[in-house]
Design a protein around this nucleic acid. Sequence first.
DNA 1: ACTATAAAGGTATTAGAGTACCTAAATAGA
DNA 2: TCTATTTAGGTACTCTAATACCTTTATAGT
Lengths: 132, 132
Amino acid sequence: MSLINFSEGFFIAVHSLILLEKHKPERLSAKFLAQELHSSQAHLSKVFQKLTKAGVVTSVRGPAGGFVLNKDSEEITFLDIYEIVEGRVNISGCVFGKSYCAFTTCIFGNELNKLTKEVYDKLNSTKISDFR
Amino acid sequence: MSLINFSEGFFIAVHSLILLEKHKPERLSAKFLAQELHSSQAHLSKVFQKLTKAGVVTSVRGPAGGFVLNKDSEEITFLDIYEIVEGRVNISGCVFGKSYCAFTTCIFGNELNKLTKEVYDKLNSTKISDFR
DNA sequence: ACTATAAAGGTATTAGAGTACCTAAATAGA
DNA sequence: TCTATTTAGGTACTCTAATACCTTTATAGT
């Protein structure tokens, strides 16, 4: 039980894209990537449907098919990938997901929001090309 | 979608204990607390079963029954409460919950673990008595 | 053209958190 | 002592992320 945790979907996305970057311009299949990451191929395929729609990778069907990173995708940030997989990130929201709180002042002050911002900055400053 | 988020159960636990501290030595019922926090009474009751077993509060059944904070419980930390509700916290683990990684070095370096430690320290340094 | 391969995408199952409901046990007050 | 109230605790339902399965579509190689 970790205090900061990311989903399996995000794990798959970042690690796969880094593998695509490292093997460039090779085309890698969902099966290969799933084996490499010790992840579910079904889950990985679903994640890649999002990445393909978002234009991060190009997919090719058929024998010797698979995925390749698009031209500008090395410059994509972890934050971009996070939002493609998980949805838009809220940087200043309540850590409990509340839009309304019975307490007048937040019990955490603004410290957790500051730390959230630091996580955000970390994701926003890390690019796929950093792992070339 | 926040990058750092805590569960409804933890929300209920901390906020309820702070209310108990503020209303000391009054006895507060599950119904009252749930209304006050705009939370589910059923969920709150379950959370308080854990807090009672852990010795943080004392429960009294019957009319005018409810919960009171135990003697030393003002000095309890948010971290203690977190672990009672959610289970033991892992400070140095993988943010993806992996015990094994296909990559030789973590893509986040040790930065996320550093930030996790800061969240941990924040929880560990905040006490119920801080909200007297 | 045919066949085997691999992604696309719809549907269904699983696991866990949160929620709801119901009965039993305890207790304050009449 | 009786009654109403409130927690204890078991069970079951709901919702979502993750996972699995299956059919369709595209394509490389023969």
